[in-house]
Amino acid sequence: MDLKDLYRDVIVDHNRNPRNFGALHPADAQADGHNPLCGDRLTVYVKLDGDRIADAKFDGAGCAISVASASLLTEAIKGKSRTAVKELFNQVHALLTQQDAQADTARLGKLAALSGVREFPARVKCASLCWHTLNAALDNAPAAPVSTE
């Protein structure tokens, strides 16, 4: 197991300089995610234009994997329809959890950098927290924060 598979340059870069970092007010949808065991806490904000994601931002604090994953997420979903975002969620989920999943870089783009996470089972929840939080936001978030622990 190679550490460089987990902390790829893209991940390190997005952790150091997270994109779309900050609150979005007013947001059309938002939700909180919290993994108390490791201390990751983030909020995902979405602005909608009809069925499309017009803008997405996030804020909070967490480990390199959770911050980079959220940063990559906000970049990846902008301009996409809700259906396309759900498809992307499924692909990322497969990438993170299925040993034989092929990283379809053509469709995943930079998100393919997350493929090393599955070699580190304890860290899958870090990478997936923002995605589950986004799902909750788009499905009219429950009051309680989302958790992947």
Partner: peptide, 26 residues
């Protein structure tokens, strides 16, 4: 600038086992 969880993972690849998290003392 480095989250404890990342420290724990990287230390593990060096064979060093430590605990990271809230230690059941939130």
């Amino acid at each position: 600038g480095i989250h404890p969880h990342d420290i724990g993972t990287i230390l593990d690849t060096e064979g060093v086992a430590i605990r990271t998290g809230h230690h059941c003392a939130m």
